[in-house]
């Protein structure tokens, strides 16, 4: 089997809120067609790190980054890079399902394309169906595409948000605790969906749920207080951690 290509990598990435440094020099490589989990106790900077990968972190007043994030070999923090174009290539799913209020289910899915200037109706139709099918939501919503996106249940809303992200076809998808607001059944369907997405996308997921990381992720990284303690294949991290801290955390003695 040929070696999978590295699609995204961080080199010495540091994230700041004003004077406070939340993430301290983290270097990780992400392969294409893989699921990568980031775990760690609350306040360890894992969400901030994730939000730095698509330059959303800097939208918070006073927040900035140092170090490199390389997307296919190009540092997205170089001066001439337009963050808007970066975000079209690195999609994001948030903790709370957040479909756009006032938009229909259909418009929620294609809004990204529409606002990028796609006007061809049949293409939008096609993209919407394709994305909703991939997000395993099509059968549930195909008869009510004109209903508001907010009329769906929490789990459906989150799959709608995933469909919305897939529609613009980013090679990398970030997920910030995507199931923490959902019940176990909705969580299971999202996890199943992640396994599907893995066939095409590189998925990076922040999670509080260690079982989730163990179930779905190929690789896992463990953060404490903004530092990378350990990273590697999930199997190794969860069965045979090299660091004492990792072992304490995954066995519940700390965190």
């Amino acid at each position: 089997m040929e070696e999978a290509k590295t699609i995204l990598s961080t080199k010495n990435l540091e994230c700041f809120f004003g004077d406070f440094q939340a993430v301290k020099g983290i270097s990780i490589d992400y392969k294409e067609k893989s699921i990568n989990a980031i775990i760690g106790p609350s306040g360890c900077g894992k969400s901030t790190y994730l939000r730095s990968l698509n330059r959303i972190h800097e939208e918070i007043p006073g927040a900035y980054n140092k170090g490199e994030v390389n997307l296919l070999g190009k540092n997205i923090y170089e001066k001439d890079v337009d963050p808007v174009l970066i975000r079209r290539n690195i999609g994001m799913v948030f903790q709370k399902p957040n479909p756009f209020p006032s938009l229909s289910i259909f418009d929620n899915v294609v809004i990204g394309l529409k606002l990028q200037g796609v006007k061809n109706k049949s293409l939008l139709q096609e993209k919407a169906e394709h994305s909703l099918r991939k997000a395993a939501l099509w059968d549930e919503v195909k008869d009510k595409l004109n209903k508001p996106g907010t009329s769906l249940s929490g789990g459906q809303q989150q799959r709608l948000c995933i469909a919305r992200t897939i529609a613009v076809d980013p090679p990398v998808i970030l997920m910030d605790e995507p199931t923490s607001a959902l019940d176990p059944i909705a969580t299971a369907s999202i996890e199943e969906l992640m396994m599907e997405l893995k066939k095409e996308f590189c998925v990076i997921i922040v999670t509080h749920n260690m079982q989730q990381a163990a179930r779905v992720a190929d690789n896992t990284a463990f953060f404490v207080l903004g530092e990378l303690i350990e990273q590697g294949a999930s199997e190794q991290i969860f069965t045979n951690p090299k660091q004492k801290k990792t072992e304490d955390y995954i066995t519940g003695r700390f965190g």
Binding site: I56, V84, R87, M92, F94, I111, L115, Q116, T165
Partner: peptide, 23 residues
């Protein structure tokens, strides 16, 4: 909601005028 718009690669002014304000 604004972040969700930005994360789709929509420029800030469009997020405001096409998503936030109509909502």
């Amino acid at each position: 909601i604004r972040e969700a718009g930005l994360a789709l690669g929509i420029p800030r002014w469009k997020v405001i005028f096409m998503i936030v304000v109509p909502g």
